[in-house]
Design a protein around this nucleic acid. Structure first.
Lengths: 345, 345
DNA sequence: CCCCATTTTGGGAGCGCTCCCAATACCCTG
DNA sequence: CAGGGTATTGGGAGCGCTCCCAAAATGGGG
């Protein structure tokens, strides 16, 4: 009999498929993996056997023999609650999921909270348990990217950490988004346009501020540092910044806020100060989160194509894994934002 | 030399650790896996070798040899956008992540959208690529749970599908949450308390309605089916239901809405109908989502301990994997909700 | 019809680990 | 000090697959 070791239950093995198709294990493997060096007749025979037996390759065996895992990790720094807030996390996951859907790649979700978990992650990666890493919401001073670099582990990050980001990255066009938002305010006749920024160590926040500045000067308005209030992406921070702005420049007639959550805080302060929105003060946020849609009045906001960012990150990573194109520039992608105009401006 | 095959680079293997510690491979394995049948001296020697070499077990080899994967899958039906909305998804993920943090278990994220992906998932599971499955937001008619059952694949679902849920499940106390919400409304002097329900095929939605009914009759109010408007968990659905209610019972003075998102829709309709909140109509939602906090006025809502639910699901699944306790009842967990009172009631 | 280049094929040799059994070491009894 | 456990230990036999080399089949050309 051609039959390999007969097994009562369990999943069929490659060996069994090969036996069934009347070919050798190696040949069967070739067919499964789509090698071109197989005759058509053989290919068909093997494919038939696969279908009949309902064969599915054993991942672990593959990983062991092939020294790869067919899995990538999405690493999420857990303290970064901002990232967990809608719309980021789920949208990124969806995008990544979509890009991976017709791939053999698995998506591993890794939350790194404290240092212990951080070390554990390092081990994971060191042990090459994944083929690549998607790093989101990394801080500029996070050692993880360097570690990955050293390990030669393919990696893509969301949001460049600074102008000369060495890693492949995917980002939305923070500068242009902010610029367009402020331009919009100006086009509505606003002249004293203030801004509340995110934490400026975050490159994206800095870029939004740059965009604000560019728009202000393009509009021929007088730049005034008192119109710029730094905050920290939190609602409370936004409120505090708004209070500062109101104290320094009571005559302001518009505020571009670098996140919807901060805008919610600002909105509260404006309400308490009896400034009507948008009559007295126009407000524009950033993120187009659910908060924006449900604010009163609904908040004009800059939408980032987050799901698309997730998709692109995954694609970039897959390319990177398939074989980084060394001659190429670092492949960083910047996606356009969209201004969603609502009643607050 | 005792040294096993010397390898230039790469990760150290068990064999190398064993050689270094001057013991056999089997013994080293025993130490790594915490078997008690090892002498203290040996254990220490192996542990030292592990530390010196920075040994990390190869997952693939383990999986292959041990016929397990040390991974569980979190299966998310992608069309279920409700689940993706804050606060569910990220909170569940956090909870699960927390429970898995000091485990060797990996978390695989699997989005199943169309039927193709559904089939692919079935393959995954069939091929035993995971040790267990966490199933969230399953519909009552989803064939997946049965498939898993057949396969003998450990599985925990979030939200029982009906009163006699055969699978281990974790749920929040929908009945009691709803009951408490309505009781709260009654205690504030409301007498014509309406409700907007979710899709009643969803068991949780049904339970919330049951809770409403229980509270209404406990308060000695006259039950009136015209005070009950079914909806579908969407904002538009909530708005439509609110319109119906207003038409049928213009004298209503409170509405318990089975989700914050629907409450947002209802709130909009009430605004258009010039009903003040809470003066004319008190509103209570469910979920305590970000929408509730930012509604105007802020919405009283029933909070579910979602992160805790994720944690419990993971724990239940780990137990199940470790060896289902057959004598035991099906281990289903129901967690208490909490009424978060804000200005809308 | 033979010879050589080319294509296709079979299957050995691992990948690194767990399982398990036989072997060894150790420890009490009597 | 022998005898019979019991506690440890070593290492063979896979797990199912990929890689790769040598063997077999195929196809021209002369």
């Amino acid at each position: 009999m051609a039959a390999a070791r007969v097994r009562s239950g369990g999943r069929p093995t490659l060996e069994e498929v090969a036996a069934r198709a009347g070919v050798g294990r190696g040949t069967a493997s070739r067919v499964i993996n789509g090698s071109p060096r197989v005759s058509d007749a053989t290919r068909e025979a093997v494919e038939a056997a696969v279908a009949e037996l309902g064969y599915v390759p054993n991942r672990a065996a593959r990983a062991l023999a092939g020294n790869r895992t067919d899995a990538i990790a999405l690493v999420v720094p857990e303290p970064e609650t901002r990232f967990f807030a809608e719309p980021y996390f789920s949208a990124i996951v969806r995008g990544v999921g979509a890009a991976l859907a017709d791939t053999e790649m698995q998506l591993l979700l890794t939350l790194v909270g404290n240092d212990r978990e951080r070390r554990r992650l390092a081990q994971y990666l060191t042990a090459h348990r994944v083929d690549g890493v998607l790093l989101v919401a990394v801080h500029a001073d996070d050692p993880l990217p360097e570690l990955l670099e050293q390990l030669g582990m393919p990696c893509v990050i969301s949001g460049a950490r600074h102008a000369a980001e060495p890693l492949p990255s995917v980002d939305s066009d923070n500068f242009e988004g902010a610029r367009a938002a402020v331009e919009h305010l100006v086009s509505r006749g606003r002249r004293q346009v203030a801004t509340i920024t995110g934490r400026l160590e975050v490159y994206g926040a800095q870029r939004r501020l740059d965009g604000y500045r560019a728009a202000v000067s393009a509009a021929g308005l007088a730049p005034d540092e008192r119109l710029i209030a730094p905050a920290d992406f939190t609602e409370e921070g936004g409120a505090a910044a708004m209070r500062d702005l109101l104290a320094r420049r009571p005559d302001l007639d518009a505020v571009f806020v670098a996140s919807d959550v901060m805008a919610a805080g600002a909105r509260q302060v404006l309400r308490e100060a009896d400034r009507r929105i948008p009559e007295d003060v126009a407000l524009v946020g950033f993120d187009d989160s659910v908060v924006a849609r449900h604010m009163h009045p609904p908040l004009t906001s800059v939408r980032q194509p987050i799901e698309e960012m997730g998709r692109r990150m995954a694609q970039l990573l897959l390319d990177e894994i398939a074989g980084r194109t060394p001659g190429d520039e670092r492949p960083s992608v910047v996606l356009p934002t969209e201004l969603v105009v609502r009643d607050s401006s």
